[in-house]
């Protein structure tokens, strides 16, 4: 029986068009989703529970809108859902890691899973940061896990190809694809999610030492190249192979 916590982050839909207004990303009208790599982490956490027993808590940090991500996790089968309540706006990485680490402690976590990087920042800092704050082992970019009672056997990319890593719990694991497609919710799960209550977790205030000065849009992509006529075939093939790397 193991106390499993999975960190899930609500991020703007990866297809959303983000507008900049007065030097800040305007997120008021966008659709929010669960960060895709966190969905893989959720799948691993549920498989962990199924393999050795225990309890899975989905934990997030953010304003009340993030409850949707927790309810979605509940519909997939987690036992509990919890949120560290912070206001809308920028919270720096160090503060996030500190608050999440404290929340993990208060939940009695023995193992923490999260995605290898969030789809909005792509920073990949939360998992290792939480591990650092907890003083736990940290294993990143994991593609496969074999579960045992108090330890895990993990696969992660290595310079030689793949490395098989053994770790005793407690540990923080960041997940890549590899453990199968995340499961789909079903109506029974959705009914459970409707009734589920989000536990609000109090943590200390952690003042960040960074702030956002300004948001800017990424530079516009240069216009695509177009070719007409069969005389360009070999050039197009060369570009597809050498520049686009698609063939």
């Amino acid at each position: 029986m193991v106390e499993i916590v999975v960190l899930v982050k609500q991020v703007p839909d990866t297809n959303a068009k983000i507008e900049i207004k007065d030097g800040r990303a305007d997120l008021s009208m966008i659709k929010w989703i669960t960060s895709p790599y966190d969905e893989y982490a959720l799948e691993v956490a549920l498989q962990h529970k199924e393999a050795v027993g225990g309890s899975v808590t989905a934990l997030t940090l953010g304003p009340a809108r993030c409850d949707k991500t927790l309810k979605d996790a509940k519909a997939l089968g987690v036992d509990k859902i919890a949120r560290v309540d912070v206001d809308e706006g920028y919270v720096d990485s160090l503060s996030i890691q500190s608050m999440l680490a404290e929340a993990c402690k208060s939940l009695g976590a023995e193992v923490v899973y999260c995605g290898k990087a969030a789809a909005d920042t792509n920073a990949g800092s939360t998992g290792p940061g939480v591990a650092e704050k907890l003083g736990w082992a940290s294993i990143a970019n994991v593609t496969n896990v074999v579960f045992a009672d108090n330890s895990l056997e993990l696969m992660q990319p290595a310079p030689e190809g793949q490395a098989k890593i053994g770790v005793n719990l407690p540990a923080v694991i960041t997940c890549d694809k590899g453990m199968g497609e995340p499961r789909r919710a079903n109506v029974k799960g959705i009914m459970m999610a409707k009734r589920a209550v989000v536990d609000l977790i109090e943590t200390g205030n952690f003042e960040g030492n960074t702030s956002v000065i300004e948001h800017t849009s990424p530079p516009q992509k240069p216009p695509g190249k177009s070719y007409e006529g069969s005389e360009h075939v070999s050039e197009v093939v060369k570009l597809l192979r050498d520049e686009a790397n698609v063939i």
Partner: peptide, 14 residues
């Protein structure tokens, strides 16, 4: 309702 949206989205994604 939240439940109706979740059911709709589940089937939509499927």
């Amino acid at each position: 309702t939240e439940e109706e949206l979740m059911v709709r989205d589940m089937v939509r994604e499927w």
